[in-house]
């Protein structure tokens, strides 16, 4: 049986409904909420601020620290144990790398920019939602950025290209390929690329082209949310 119809009824190139808002956390220097389907990510930026202990400081440029965390009740099965895990540490790390190319931290030597990402509810695509929310929060904080960073996954089920892979599709019994991608949509420069599962060179190339179109859609939602803050 070929994968002719997506489990949740979406079109193959259709992403889930999105919502975005910035300035949701008054204490933070910048903040944002990004929801895609049922996945909800919150992000807050604090900084640039002084970095302690001092030996961690870099006199050439500021340091970006990202913290990705799933709230204990945000998983679909059992309660998630609080505190960092190997998974959350890896995601925090790739999130830093996904955001850094858009920032110009040379302006802030010896300081740190902390980005906290909290998942309130998860239903696939949490790292991409976290990166998307964090980019908005950084823009909300007033950082000069080369561009926003938008992130989404593309994938393959039985050689059929799908976008914004759902939780059910991630667990498709005959196998699934999941490719989270983040990019600066204006230039198309890719800042995150991961893949679980198989894809040919041609399929991957096709996936990246489609991912760009998907990121453009997310980019628009991010921009609208940032503009909305100043419309009031």
């Amino acid at each position: 049986m070929a994968y002719n119809k997506r489990i949740d009824g979406r079109k193959f190139d259709e992403i889930r409904e999105m919502k975005a808002q910035v300035g949701i956390i008054p204490n933070a220097d910048g903040s944002a909420m990004f929801q895609i389907g049922k996945t909800i990510a919150l992000a807050a930026v604090y900084g640039p601020r002084e970095l302690f202990p001092k030996f961690l400081q870099n006199s050439d440029r500021g340091i970006l620290r990202c913290y990705y965390n799933m709230m204990s009740f945000s998983g679909s099965g059992e309660r998630v144990r609080p505190g960092p895990s190997r998974r959350s540490k890896e995601i925090s790390y790739i999130t830093e790398n996904a955001l850094l190319p858009a920032l110009n931290l040379e302006d802030f030597p010896n300081s740190v920019v902390d980005v906290y990402i909290e998942l309130l509810q998860t239903d696939a695509g949490t790292r991409c939602a976290g990166i998307t929310a964090a980019a908005m929060a950084l823009a909300d904080a007033g950082f000069q950025m080369k561009d926003l960073v938008s992130a989404a996954s593309v994938g393959f089920i039985e050689n059929r290209l799908i976008v914004d892979v759902s939780n059910e599709e991630e667990h498709y019994e005959k196998g699934n390929t999941d490719i989270p991608i983040a990019m600066m949509p204006r230039t198309g420069e890719i800042t995150l690329l991961q893949m679980d599962g198989f894809a040919s060179k041609e399929e991957l190339a096709e996936g990246i082209i489609v991912a760009k179109a998907v990121c453009m859609e997310i980019y628009k939602v991010q921009q609208e949310a940032l503009k909305a803050r100043y419309k009031k």
Binding site: P26, G75, S76, L120, Q121
Partner: peptide, 22 residues
Amino acid sequence: ISSKSAEGSARVKMGDTEVVGG
């Protein structure tokens, strides 16, 4: 507020103070 994941959930706001529970 997290009804997909949590068996019960809520958000309380008082002024600018906000908390969530699940």
